[in-house]
Amino acid sequence: MSDPVLSVKGLSTHFFTRAGVVKAVNGVSFDLARGEIMGLVGESGSGKTVTGFSLLGLVDAPGRIVEGSIKLNGVELTTLSEAELRKRRGHEISMIFQDPIATLNPMLTIGQQMKLAIDAHERVSAAAARSRATELLTQVGIPSAAARLRAYPHEFSGGMRQRVAIAIALLHRPSVIVADEPTTALDVSIQAQILAKMRALARETGTAMVWISHDLAVVSSLASKLAVMYAGRIVEEGPTATLLRDPRHPYTAGLIASLPAMAKPGAPLNQIAGSTPSLLSLPEGCPFSPRCTHASGQCTTDADMTQNGGRQWRCFHPVGQTAPEPA
């Protein structure tokens, strides 16, 4: 296995607010190999989006990265100046957001915006820029791309706009794309088209992706690796199918079991009691322990990551280990 393109170690991003310190991300670590798609799964407030923003150095005051390292192609990002970061952003690492309309300028045509995005990092002729833009729009599945360069964002449908945003993110063949719930606002039929496209693109271009989502089904069909976040931490990480079939952390297990697809129609679902803790006042030790049926006195202290056969989890009482695997 070659060196990872992205290596995150002990990343902590905190927000210093009027009400107190919000520990949005708390010691997150993961590696991402070339062309690999990692699903970063969690509920609202789990810190998945802030993790994504931290990777690009896009955390605004009152938040900042307080600890940890982010290495992109071997270069440490956390110590870079804003100017140095800007050189890499959109070039080596780029981001796709949930709402593409927020990232596209309504006053410029798609062609103009793509030209600007190219000019930000390279000097190319107008003709070369146009052909590159056309090529990428075609690649993400926009019909008659050359003609569509002259169209404005409002002339595209939601799904097409997201494709344009993806094409812009791909312009410089970045090593890593951080995608923050890019299909959540889209209809399922459009979502399926985009998921299929993204998977093919990652394979063709070798771009690695961090795919942030709350939807286990979406990432399960897309990512080869999953990281599950809860209250600012990664509680479990591993190969997608193994992790979903045989979860170790009680939170992951509870989350999967609570899906309607896991129960007989009409029967009660396996719900997780309680609700997510406030990031302002996290419980001692494991943040999931107040909701956990496996919790013991030990859980008020911090558990380390247990490494085992290519996967890892942060729990004193992992599920599914004592019981033998069903044949």
């Binding site: 399926a192 998921l195 089904a217 069909s221 199918a241 899906l259 697809a261 896991m262």
Partner: peptide
């Protein structure tokens, strides 16, 4: 519509 809904993949890598 049913075909395009992502399903939880559990049984295959």
């Amino acid at each position: 519509l049913f075909g395009s809904v992502p399903k939880l993949v559990l049984d295959a890598d």
